[in-house]
Design a protein around this nucleic acid. Sequence first.
DNA 1: TAGATTGTTAATCGATTAACAATC
DNA 2: TAGATTGTTAATCGATTAACAATC
Lengths: 208, 208
Amino acid sequence: MRCLMRLKANGLETVSSQALSSAAGVKPTQLRKDLTYFGQFGTRGLGYDVNQLTEMIAEVLGTNTLQPVVLIGVGNLGKALISYKGFEREGFEIVSAFDANPGVVALGKFMEIPVRPMDEIPKVLSEHQVRMAILCVPVEAAQSIVNVLIENGVTGILNFAPIVLLTPEGVTVNNVNLAIELENLSYFIQEHAPSSDETSDSDPTDGD
Amino acid sequence: MRCLMRLKANGLETVSSQALSSAAGVKPTQLRKDLTYFGQFGTRGLGYDVNQLTEMIAEVLGTNTLQPVVLIGVGNLGKALISYKGFEREGFEIVSAFDANPGVVALGKFMEIPVRPMDEIPKVLSEHQVRMAILCVPVEAAQSIVNVLIENGVTGILNFAPIVLLTPEGVTVNNVNLAIELENLSYFIQEHAPSSDETSDSDPTDGD
DNA sequence: TAGATTGTTAATCGATTAACAATC
DNA sequence: TAGATTGTTAATCGATTAACAATC
């Protein structure tokens, strides 16, 4: 998607699996095979229409319309995520933040992204039809908040608390554990590690 | 590793691949196979010695001794990471932070983790024999800082800037891209997505 | 029509797992 | 010795890739 965006910004209208895959660092066959999983979008002899492909991927990702998201827990990390511009750029809108600390709520009341007390979660979720939440609360609070979120229609959780969340079928959890990221790195700089050959993003698989 | 820690905390001295794997959410065979990649640590008929296995894994991960780490870029995210206690618990020590903004440096001069100006990077890295860095600077600054880091002996970078870093062979980059995490989640809450079956951590593969 | 590039088949490769002999 | 559980082999499964017919 990001490669396509770049092509689009440069005015390209058409791209071959060859060109796009090399930009993305994968093999052309891989790219074509993956795309056909969702349908047929290319033109033989020509390649793919950049606009059409962009739109199709946005639709698959669910980012073609602005996705409302809430953020729970306005500590250091929460604040950092609120001010992160990347979410918006990719089609997400943090409609509200929540915090258990009245002081934090008072301070955040009139911010661009308002901070509300926890008991307003149900109201806000139903008002904005929110289905995704970013969770940056302490481990102790995580599970009970998740229960509330799920009761109120959330089906996707980006979880920063280092704990395995229990969720019913149909709810997806993506865990981001920064300590694990660092451990992983640590492993690869040890001499016994088979030297890794490609720079790549973390790719979370995810949750029941 | 985290499962083992928990067993240890509970006074368990021995664990079977069966028990450990179910705690970790993988199959017993998988666990045994993976462990043998590093050697033979079990006792047939008995299982694995928790202490011995813990130690072996810590060694493989390189977390048996405290790993010195530096953090570059003390913005919102940088601050959040500095105050994150998880790193220390897992065997990492942020020995210093760095920032390009003199104001940030002035403020952070006498913090528990000191904030220093960028030009002191070489001195600090060699003094503490630092091999790992956490990068949370703006995209524009990322590559040039990475060059400095590598020149001064860093071989592992945890990168939060949404950019593909160019690094020589032997340097590992782990990218954490929060927008991608959210996109991934978004995909799975769409109806067309094959419902995912397991909650799991992001597992970064990594970099040349 | 000739050249290009897709979508798809079949071959290859690697990773997971069941089964079991080794052995505590 | 009998029961348990490892380490390892061989079978299975799924994912990647090469090759190519379809077709723009």
